[in-house]
Amino acid sequence: MDLWFTENHTENVRFSIKVDKQLYTGQSEFQRIDIFDSEEFGRVLALDGYVMLTEKDEFMYHEMIVHVPMCVHPNPRKILVIGGGDGGTVRELVKYSSVESVDLVEIDEEVVTACKEYLPQTAGMLEDPRVNTHFEDGLKFIRHHENEYDLIIVDSTDPFGPGEGLFTREFYGNCYKALTDDGIMVNQHESPFYANDAYAMQRAHKQIVNSFPIARVYQAHIPTYPSGHWLFGFASKKYHPYNDVDFEKWKKLGLKLKYYNTNLHSASFALPTYVEELLKDVE
């Protein structure tokens, strides 16, 4: 049998994964959810036909979206995750004993249900007693919170479909309001490479720059995302992303990770020239 999953990375570029077996297909109120097994990437989650994660490379994304801000913030206790129904971000967060609570706000309950059943690798820690899951629109949830979170992680899908509202100025502004005075917001920031992704990336950056005094971008290599070159946004009220960070303190925690390390931390903020220019254009 020769069954392939194909995602269009642009109108002219396709990315295909050979499928071993389709495990789950569901149509929720918000999107189509598919989970399948593959020889190369293990289990794969796709929403509306876009790869969200694969078992093989999800650690790159989840470690980078979590450990960079967790290392910068001296005492992150109350955390909010918006999106991230697959549980990967939560899994990384609960590795810290200092974390007192994690609010996970996912719009689509069916994503969480499907991931709990088929993706224990990422969803395995969603039952941690510190985690509170809310099935609600992220923009609506955040509006009702003020001066509450030390860290907000925006683990969203793309800026079209259900995640649309999470790339807007009103959303970032409300995140600013919901953070404490030394709070940090990190977000999935799209890719600089293909034109449409780069445009979305620039727009998001522009909105964040307008909302936060410190707004920087860092990168990671994520093979199954378009172009493989992916960005994260680091927005902060007080802390610089790598100057004055107490790396030694973080190292003493002794977390065993596969992608993130403290050398990579600072290095991930060193961007290619063309990316720097794209960002500068909107600053």
Binding site: D137, L139, K140, I142, R143, R169, E170, G173, N174, K177
Partner: peptide, 18 residues
């Protein structure tokens, strides 16, 4: 769409704050 309504409400709240 409900999500567009959320954007309008959120933006009005931000305009008031800023």
């Amino acid at each position: 769409r409900p999500k567009d309504i959320e954007r309008l409400v959120a933006a009005l709240s931000e305009i008031r704050r800023n």
